[in-house]
Amino acid sequence: MTDLDQRIASVLRERAEGEIDTRRLLRVSRAQGRRRQLRRRAATGTALTLAGILGLVGVTGTDFTGLPGRLPWIATTPTVAPPVPPRADGVPGAAQRPDLVGGDPRVLHLGLDTSRARYLGWNIYGWTQTESIRFSVGGGQPVVVEVSRSAQRLNDAAIDGPGSQRITVPPLAFDGGVQPLGTTGGLAKGWQPVPGVYARVTMLVGDRAALERAVDVLRWDEARRCEAPLRLTTLPKDATLTDCDVDVSAVPNGLRAQYTIGRGESAAMYVRLMYGAQIAGSRSDGNRTVDGRPAYLSPDGATLELLDIPKAHLVAAFGWLWPGIDPAKGYVSFTEADATTVLAGAQVPKDLSDPETWD
């Protein structure tokens, strides 16, 4: 769990019996957000979550607009069909087209044998052109597989350990060898599943047998949509989807999906869906409409939220520039009109707690 997650969780625990101090949450998240995004986009640091997740309890009428990080949900034993990213029809997997790996933020070019493994999350980072899946095998400890067409990008990427600890993975030769993760008791393996594609599997706890079982459930002959359950069907002019990051480890009780939209070298918009069965209420004082639906523009004019999704928050944070950009140099960021375009085309399943309705 990152430092941002710990701060948010601390606020939630302090206010578990009452209303959340959303201004404090926003101050914390915005102060940390740009630094975290810079780390995530740096070629030397794609963070992948392997740590356990904290629970959200007693939240009523919570406003999470503007949060750039990951909200911690409590992972529970699923009572519905396990979540699976829908197939990307007509798209070949890494085995057939290794040159496509990491090239499309909407598509994962690998999958899992779901008879033996459960998806916990998946993401694609356009900056590093890296795809990853977090999963468990037989109810065991979480495992992360990362794939890229560059061995160096994988070797440069650290992983998240317990708390806010950052763990550097020893450089791998990608020859199938297994190496320990320092003193954590974890293991890492690197190999080439197909020529031109490099893969790294890491786990914080487990032995070589568990690691090999995890490798064995990977499927390289299929492609799946990263955009699930939330799908963005319309983007502003001259904008592109750059990142896709989904956490389904707490389904059916909660989930998070966050996508990053970029424009040129300066503008960034973060579109985030958060669902929680424990969210008892939501904002009702809309001051905008999006395609006839009630919406709320934050007082600082930087976030726009749709208000008619039960037990969920769908927010577009649009007043951002990429880290290191000087706004005084005339760079143009996204606008409320751009956020309205994105939210108007956002598709959300009727039942976020049931993965069978996501496709």
Rank of each mutant, 00 (worst) to 15 (best):
H313Q: 09
R134K: 08
V332Q: 15
D89T: 07
P252G: 13
G330D: 04
G176M: 07
M203H: 02
I159H: 03
D63A: 15
G138C: 10
P195M: 00
V201S: 04
R7K: 12
R293G: 08
R87D: 09
G111S: 10
T233E: 14
S284M: 08
F135A: 04
A268H: 05
I74P: 14
P349M: 08
S298T: 15
G281A: 09
G276A: 12
A31V: 04
T46L: 14
Q258K: 15
A346S: 10
G176V: 01
G324Q: 13
D207C: 10
P327L: 03
Y331N: 15
Q192P: 13
E336D: 10
W220C: 11
S132H: 06
V290I: 14
F318I: 13
E336G: 10
R272T: 06
G177R: 15
F64H: 09
W322E: 08
A31K: 13
T340A: 15
L187A: 04
R213M: 06
L218T: 08
P349F: 15
W191K: 12
D285T: 14
D221I: 05
R272N: 02
A317V: 06
A239L: 07
V57H: 03
A94I: 12
Q129C: 07
T233H: 13
G103N: 03
M274H: 08
D285R: 15
L273K: 07
L241R: 13
D113W: 04
G345M: 02
Q165S: 09
I20Q: 07
V290L: 04
A16Y: 00
R30N: 01
C226L: 07
G111Y: 11
N155A: 10
G292V: 13
R272V: 01
V107S: 15
G52K: 02
L314V: 12
I74Q: 11
P83W: 07
W220A: 10
T130M: 08
Y331W: 05
V215Y: 00
